[in-house]
């Protein structure tokens, strides 16, 4: 990876009290890469993504995103990030449109786009995730899968350069999963950099070009994506249960 990497992580460590979750993790991510972040439950995937998302501070090491050092310059980085977690980060008592509008306001979109363009973007976003007919329904009435689809629309509303996806397939049925597959392909074609924490190894092998495997809080492997069988064998060898 060249030094012009978009994301540079060096000797990253994170501890919660005496419990060390990440130890000496280092890797670089180039612009436009699509990376699968793999590891057993509790291996530190979510913690790593939360640090990259500026939601958590590292205990040691350094993280640089787009030339900005975390956590010192977190505010500058946030506008470049789109984040999907296993929770949808939505308000139950607001409608789908109201939820998106809230996030649009926090990302300054009304001023950047103007009223008409913003309205078009909000409507397009809902249509793209198949929620055009539920625009004014409260999120409380949505199934878990529909909430996750709305969360995907929320994450890319401000056109971020980097997407951090933590178990993005949570709650999605077969149609929803296929939709997310196509969205990820679309986002990559648009040049976005994507890091996705995934449990489904065959899906990771099909989607991504590179795999980072965490084991025992360390980066156990950083490899070009092999075929599904080899990935499963490598994963099992590196992350014994």
């Amino acid at each position: 990876m060249a030094d012009s990497a978009l994301i540079q992580v060096e000797s990253l460590s994170k501890a919660f009290g005496l419990r060390v979750v990440l130890r000496g993790v280092s890797f670089k991510v180039g612009r436009g890469e699509l990376i699968a972040l793999l590891g057993a439950n509790g291996s530190g995937k979510t913690t790593l993504l939360r640090i990259l998302a500026t939601l958590s501070q590292p205990s040691g090491g350094s993280v640089v995103i787009g030339g900005w050092q975390l956590p010192k310059e977190s505010a500058a980085v946030r506008g470049q990030l789109g984040v999907v977690t296993h929770l949808p980060l939505l308000y139950d008592d607001l409608s789908a449109m109201e939820n998106l509008r809230l996030y649009a306001e926090l990302y300054n979109l009304p001023q950047e786009l103007g009223t008409a363009a913003l309205q078009a973007r909000l409507s397009d976003s809902l249509a793209r995730v198949g929620l055009a007919k539920r625009t004014n329904d409260r999120v409380r009435t949505f199934s878990r899968g529909m909430q996750q689809r709305l969360a995907l629309a929320r994450a890319v509303l401000h056109d971020p350069a980097i997407l951090l996806l933590d178990e993005p397939y949570t709650g999605l049925d077969a149609h929803g999963s296929a939709l997310l597959d196509s969205l990820i392909a679309e986002w990559q074609a648009q040049g976005r950099t994507i890091i996705a924490a995934l449990h489904d190894l065959p899906r990771a092998a099909a989607l991504c070009k590179r795999a980072l495997i965490l084991g025992g809080g360390k980066l156990a492997a950083d490899l070009p994506m092999p075929d599904p069988e080899s990935l499963i064998a490598t994963f099992n060898a590196l992350t014994p249960s």
Partner: peptide
């Protein structure tokens, strides 16, 4: 509990 605090904290506002 709904994770919305994270959603607010992810936004580029003070």
């Amino acid at each position: 509990d709904r994770g919305t605090l994270d959603g607010l904290m992810l936004s580029p506002v003070p």
